[in-house]
Design a protein around this nucleic acid. Structure first.
Lengths: 337, 337
DNA sequence: CTGTTAGCGCTTTCAG
DNA sequence: CTGAAAGCGCTAACAG
């Protein structure tokens, strides 16, 4: 292995000088600089960051504990993180927890052992993880992406779900829909539900609990939910769902009962997964700015790492979301005939 | 920061003993062991692997330079790598090159600087990368996933593309198709094309160059290609494409000219991307064993790292591929009427 | 079974 | 502007 010492010897200088050259701390004469430079590449020298970290206390590594890499959503965030970490001179250590709390905790510890300078985490799902993060936060800046941790020990990057949902429902309202169904997860406190309420309220329409169905967030849940609401005396003409999977299930259910989307029923999803653009009809949905979220997360972390606000209180960044109108939504039809 | 020294002090032993306890090398008495154990967790001690690496020469880190994380394909491999690395006690450093050769090279160097014990790389696309890998290979075991590097310096994990393609075409043949079109990329040397040839030859059918169209591997290329072959005097009744995107384009084109899939035209794709299961009709396609490939890559690397065959010649693992029959293929129809 | 003692490769004072 | 020297946290002989 070629070390800084070898470089020093070859360039005829001391190790201290080589180090100053490499780190950019302290002066190095013009000609010395040149000699070191050529020694470096003649030898193919690559500095050992682990050794450096021993004195500098940082490894140049950022950790990312991701809930599920196979989700295109988080994969895109991971991609953005990799890119932005690189742009700031950091490497990225990745651990896919596959939605398993125990693995997440293990991953956080492992990353601490590897001395990551900062940590990025997507949806902290469990008390144990929260606890592990709390411990880690004492040593290392952490930023969460997406959901908020319970005791909010970390910085947070999220998107403006509530506004996104409001926009989606407003879009439906503007198309003339009045009976708009919400199919979502169990939390009425979710931004998606609140945005739905906001839009209706703003339009002077009361929320009708018959039109709100809460359950799992997958295709079959959407399928069932739609069949259920269509049995109402006065069924909805549009539905807003908490995610695209549900929306796709809704569309499928609609077809199964010979309802055309969008002429008989408009549906808007949430997330803009890959599938959304290719469903039939292509899905109107709300896209989260994944790349921007990844970038914001890295920048937040780097600011903590390099800035003076190392110990400032938790910060939160909320990014705007975008309604993407495709072909699953259309004008409300008069149900009379 | 709490160090091994603190633990030693608290447990009333020497650092050497703590080290032996931690690494498992050498004997540590029962009671001593217990005292160290409690000191460790009272203090919340986490060993510093970077420091350890200084003497052990390994960091417990595996590097993964991925061609494009947003491809569900490689994302799944990344997920498998993360999982298997963890199972073997390694962390995973990830760099998404976004198909950029310069970034790939930079990533390889960065990983060397971080001292990864081994490197995993998906499709080495450029001469520069090949060169960087060649340099790195002198120091670190490398395994490629997918394509082969030009001078084959690295171990390789791939899937049996040729057989997969042959199976796909044979499936079409068994359905009675005789005029089967191949839509693929520019390389006739590709396994996919060769598998197509194999199957036809085996069935005693000559390859008809009219039915082979080579070009880009995306949706619109597939769309165009189909339109083109359908203008032949005797158009194909089935098409085998080099990937799912192309297949989806083909289906779209078929619909646009009022051809029903599969009754008028059968189509089979390659890759089994997420979309494939959800297209209309769901796509018959060939799935690569991504998870198995990730696992094989890690195991190959770990074997090099821990085994005695550190310097054995390059090894190659070819994993079997699986034809997934869905609904885009059906019996050949007589074109007479 | 356990303590002592050299380093590992690099950064960082501190003198020159 | 540059050299010398003292560690950083840990492991690996080597004695005992």
């Amino acid at each position: 292995m070629v070390t800084a010492y070898d470089v020093a010897k070859r360039a005829g200088v001391s190790m201290g000088t080589v180090s100053r050259y490499l780190t950019g701390n302290g002066y190095v004469g013009e000609s010395t600089r040149a000699r070191i430079a050529s020694a470096v590449d003649e030898l193919g020298y690559i500095p050992n960051r682990a050794a450096a970290s021993l004195t500098t206390k940082n490894t140049g590594l950022l950790g990312f504990v991701v809930s599920d890499l196979r989700n295109p959503f988080t994969a895109e965030i991971a991609s953005a993180l990799s890119r932005n970490a690189r742009l700031h001179g950091y490497g990225l250590v990745l651990a896919d927890s596959m939605n398993d709390a125990a693995i997440s905790v293990e991953a956080v510890e492992s990353m601490r052992a590897h001395g990551v300078d900062g940590l990025i985490v997507t949806p902290p799902e469990s008390p144990e993880l929260n606890e592990a993060l709390r411990r880690a936060a004492a040593v290392t800046p952490i930023v969460g992406i997406g959901l908020r941790t319970d005791p909010m020990v970390t910085d947070l990057v999220s998107s403006d779900t509530r506004t996104g949902a409001r926009d989606a429902v407003t879009h439906l309202l503007e198309l003339g829909h009045r009976r708009i169904c919400f199919i979502g997860s169990n939390s009425m406190a979710s931004g998606r539900y609140r945005g739905y309420e906001d839009a209706l309220t703003q339009a002077g329409i009361a929320v009708n609990s018959e039109l709100v169905v809460l359950g799992d967030l997958n295709r079959s849940a959407g399928y069932q939910a739609l069949l259920q609401v269509m049995t109402l005396d006065d069924p909805p003409t549009a539905v807003f769902t908490a995610n695209d999977a549900v929306a796709l299930g809704v569309i499928q259910a609609a077809h199964s009962v010979h309802l055309d989307v969008p002429s008989d029923l408009s549906v808007v999803g949430y997330d803009d997964v890959d599938l959304a653009a290719h469903s039939v009809p292509p899905l109107t949905t709300v896209a989260q700015p994944m790349a921007a979220m990844g970038q914001a997360a890295v920048e937040l972390l780097v600011k903590r790492l390099q800035g003076s606000d190392r110990d400032a209180g938790p910060e939160q960044i909320v990014l705007p979301v975008q309604l993407i109108v495709r072909h699953s939504t259309g004008p409300a039809m008069d149900r009379k005939h």
